[in-house]
Nucleic acid binder design. Structure first.
Length: 565
RNA sequence: GCCCCCGUAGCUCAGUGGACAGAGCGCAGGCCUCCGGAGCCUGAGGCGCAGGUUCGAUUCCUGCCGGGGGCGCCA
């Protein structure tokens, strides 16, 4: 909040200087309001003079001095002094009274603190998870879900109108679905005692047997006879439905809900795939070659052209996906975000090419590629899952370490770093576990408030309490970090980077623990006690908000497990 | 061979082109009459290499060297 205000004042100053004929420039360049690492250089600093210097053909320090002289009067409400320093920085030194005003501002805003107008009036579609309905969600899908959902929450806070969508790969001609149905059918037949072998490239996981079992329970042996093709179609339906229902359940338990489950098959049924292919033909970006229909993606930077319809007449997955993205664009979103696993990275260029071929702006489509997740038990890698056969399922990890710890760990690193999750650490209730560190800070504040209530100390009124007594360095360090929440949300939204909020939550928790150790809340002189109670409450709001954006709960007390010795 | 991601402290990782590069873990030491010690404080320790762009590069570009992943008329 302070940063935004300063940026405004600085901009006004530059424009005023131009107005007065002191600076000549066309357009104001992008500039930063940053917090200098060295406190000697003030509380905030701007590089505007340096980035402007070239345009105005003046020495950066001179430019800085001119801007300084044109700062609006309002600046002095918060700023004690402004200095020109270094290569041409403008350093701002806050008045001591600033801290209290920040706390008051946060309490006044309450739940709304951190809400931005960045995305006001803009609609964004976040499409994520979109797992194949051929198996349970894996550890990797969990990362997708955590990142996508948190990003959606952050964009909502930033003012966007957000929709969450799951694309169901349920195309009836899909090779994988067919193969999956065949695998279930094989297990079903085996249950009936038929001597059939599981195909080499079939799905071998335990869950396939479970589905076969449940089909047998519901339908008995009725599929033993009958037209093989009809039976297989029926199995496709049932198996797909069951898998999908299970995925939806897992995601709901993980705190992730979708506004829309978009069926690939529905695109075929509505003739959208055919329509899109025709459109591509008309626009000259689809052509026949060796019996297949190709997308001329090389026209838009892809390394080779891609098949849309196979020589056997069946459309590829790409064909439907292009139709799907056309549908998304037609729905009129300002921003489209896709979350794909690293194994899909090669697909980015052709998708972007496809939307460009259709005449849409590919820059409105952000495709986020997240890297692999590895699971460890201490230093021992965990690879196999009993149930899925090959991959660890999301459900298994949720059951073992809980939603809060898992979501937090998923969001601890940037999505483009490979992520290692240590189950032992995530389960550990100790100082080593960052989830508990943050949640504990929140619980600690709740505890202070509980104790205050027990002692008959009422929660002071933020509107009338004197907050200028908050002058301790630990108080200032905390308040400054609290003031950053809107900026952090803006950065996370702009860069599609939810992990920034994780780092921020850890930082606020650290600042609070420092404050707690240095500054006694209950038992301080009454005016100071009142101010500190309000500071603690403001911190609680910020922590709850940050955790909420991650999809992690902010508990009022931490239940410590009794260690069994 | 081509493409994507990553090379920052002993380990795991943050770091919006700026002025002295941060955190956690680990290690060495210290702090409980008192709001929950699941906490706090102190210390040692680092931008893979070479060019380029820039007033300024850990950050952007190119090449090289390491590590991970991917290159289907599968999805």
């Amino acid at each position: 909040m302070i940063r935004q205000q300063l940026a405004e004042w600085v901009q006004q100053a530059a424009l005023a200087a131009r107005e007065a004929g002191a600076l000549a420039f066309e357009t104001l360049p992008e500039f930063e309001i940053e917090t200098p690492r060295n406190p000697e250089f003030g509380d905030y600093a701007t590089n505007l003079a340096m980035v402007l210097a070239r345009q105005v053909r003046r020495n950066p320090r001179e430019v800085a001095e001119i801007i300084r002289q044109h700062l609006p009067q309002a600046t002095h409400a918060w700023i004690e002094r402004v200095e020109v320093a270094g290569a041409g920085f403008l350093n701002f030194y806050l008045k001591p009274s600033w801290a209290g005003e920040v706390v008051r501002h946060i309490l006044m805003q309450g739940e709304r603190y951190g809400n931005l107008t960045l995305g006001a009036g803009k609609r964004v579609l976040v499409e994520f998870v979109s797992a194949n309905p051929t198996g349970p969600l894996t550890l990797g899908h969990g990362r997708n879900a955590a990142v996508g959902d948190s990003l959606a929450r952050i964009l909502e806070a930033a003012g966007y109108q957000v929709e969450r969508e799951f694309y169901i790969n349920d195309g009836e001609n899909s090779t994988q679905i067919r193969n999956f149905a065949l695998s279930v059918l094989t297990r079903y037949k085996q249950l009936l005692g038929e001597p059939v072998e599981m195909p080499e490239d079939g799905y071998h996981g335990e869950y396939v047997k479970e589905i076969a079992q449940s089909i047998r329970e519901q339908h008995g042996d009725s599929f033993a006879e009958g037209d093989p093709e009809t039976v297989l179609k029926r199995f496709e339906q049932i198996a797909k439905q069951q898998m999908l229902a299970e995925q939806e359940r897992d995601l709901a338990d993980f705190g992730v809900r979708f506004d829309r489950w978009f069926s690939e098959q529905s695109l075929y049924d509505a003739g959208k795939v055919e329509e899109t292919l025709n459109l591509l033909r008309e626009r000259g970006y689809a052509y026949e070659h060796e019996g297949a229909l190709w997308l001329k993606s090389t026209a838009f930077g892809d390394e080779k052209d891609r098949v849309l319809v196979r020589a056997n007449g069946l459309p590829t997955y790409l064909a439907a996906d292009v139709a799907y993205h056309r549908d998304k664009y037609e729905r009129g979103y300002d921003l489209l975000i896709n979350l794909w696993g690293a194994d899909h990275h090669g697909y980015v260029a052709r998708m972007k090419a496809a939307v460009a071929a259709l005449g849409y702006d590919p820059d409105r489509l952000h495709i986020l590629i997240y890297q692999l997740v590895n699971l460890f038990r201490g230093t021992e890698p965990v690879r196999m899952s009993k149930r899925a056969g090959e991959f660890i399922t999301l459900r298994e990890v949720i059951d073992e370490i809980g939603v809060d710890a898992l979501r937090f760990f998923y969001l601890l690193r940037s999505h483009d770093s490979t992520l290692d999750i240590d189950i032992e650490l995530a389960k550990e209730q100790s100082e080593k576990n960052p989830v508990f560190y943050v949640q504990y800070a929140h619980a600690r504040i709740c505890s202070i408030e509980r104790t205050a209530a027990e002692r008959g100390v009422p929660m002071p009124d933020w509107a009338t309490t004197d907050l200028s007594v908050l002058t301790h360095p630990a108080e200032h360090a905390l308040i400054k970090r609290l003031a950053d929440l809107p900026d952090e949300i803006a950065l996370a939204a702009r860069h599609d980077a939810p992990h920034r909020l994780t780092a921020y939550a850890l930082d606020v928790a650290r600042a609070f623990h420092g404050f707690y150790t240095e500054c006694r809340v209950l038992g301080a002189e009454p005016p100071l006690q009142a101010a500190r109670l309000l500071l603690a409450q403001a911190t609680r709001f910020v922590l709850a908000r940050a955790l909420g954006l991650l999809g992690v709960s902010a508990p009022e007390r931490m239940e410590r497990e009794e260690s069994v010795e």
